[in-house]
Design a protein around this nucleic acid. Sequence first.
DNA 1: ATAGGATTGTTCGAATTCGAACCAGCCGCC
DNA 2: GGCGGCTGGTTCGAATTCGAACAATCCTAT
Lengths: 172, 172
Amino acid sequence: MSAGDFESRWLSPDVNSVWTRFLQVTHRLEHHIDRRLQEQHGITHTQYEILLRLADSDERAMRMSDLADSIVTAKSAVTYQINKLSEMGLVSRKKCGRDNRGIWVHLTEDGSARLEQAAPCILSLVRELFLDAISCDQAAELDKLLGTWSDNLDAHDRNPVAYPGHPGAEAA
Amino acid sequence: MSAGDFESRWLSPDVNSVWTRFLQVTHRLEHHIDRRLQEQHGITHTQYEILLRLADSDERAMRMSDLADSIVTAKSAVTYQINKLSEMGLVSRKKCGRDNRGIWVHLTEDGSARLEQAAPCILSLVRELFLDAISCDQAAELDKLLGTWSDNLDAHDRNPVAYPGHPGAEAA
DNA sequence: ATAGGATTGTTCGAATTCGAACCAGCCGCC
DNA sequence: GGCGGCTGGTTCGAATTCGAACAATCCTAT
């Protein structure tokens, strides 16, 4: 689509509403979960996610950057959170022999316990709010959609600026 | 879905992956759009959203709290952003005669221009990343899903703590 | 009219995020 | 061996968000 395409200037109402509601729902979901988690278990959703990824991974440990990729935040944010979790004793840093600059973040016993304690609360929330609305077919469909979106993002990330179809790329 | 999982502590792998990828994709989408918008048009995604909602509304004006609801953030965040946008001259505050504590935020000419200038960039992004992946049927399906999720959230908001099925919620 | 309660918007401090700059260790290549 | 480039983590300052507390205004019922 070209820059001067009047018709495509704005989204058609129905499509526009899907996008808008998508944004609203995702924000609301995040807020809701975050709030509940903080009130009832004293950790943030991002912290929960970190613990979860650690628990799910082999050796219950992960590298900082893998963690950053996994929860989709800046590396510095991960450093910040790992510092906090480390102070809380839920996580511990260990050097990795192979790569001397790499750091392995391990889930501690306390961390594991805290995760197991918080999980039911969050999982029931996710089920009630998110999953119960989805039939199996829809789940498969949604999964496919997510895959495509993810691929699209990959493509854009691989080719950050010079992508066909968006005006203003090098204009000022 | 997953009626039989009612008691299980963790989500079944497939369902779990849907949820995880959902979180990842939404985060990546936000980041991507935000970054592009800042690089090329000097405004945040939230700021863009505010301008957009204003442009879409009758009179090109909105109350602060409606704005807050609309973009799903805390009122204080809206105040912050409106201050910024106001400094930029994209928006202006006006008293509302009817309700003396209410404030109407108006889109200025500059604001309108800035929005029109930024819109193609973002819309093409939304299309490429998000919409092009969806067929009409899928769009309808997704819309329905969003509706259900939204309703679920409404229900939870209406009845914040005492909701069946999540442990640790001893009502007052 | 008026007290009590809800609603509106702002202010404030704390928490979190981001990106850029930076340092250190790895790797390929001369 | 050593030089440049890459990668992994941290530090830093700026931006943004949140929730709680507050002030002003509206509304309802008495």
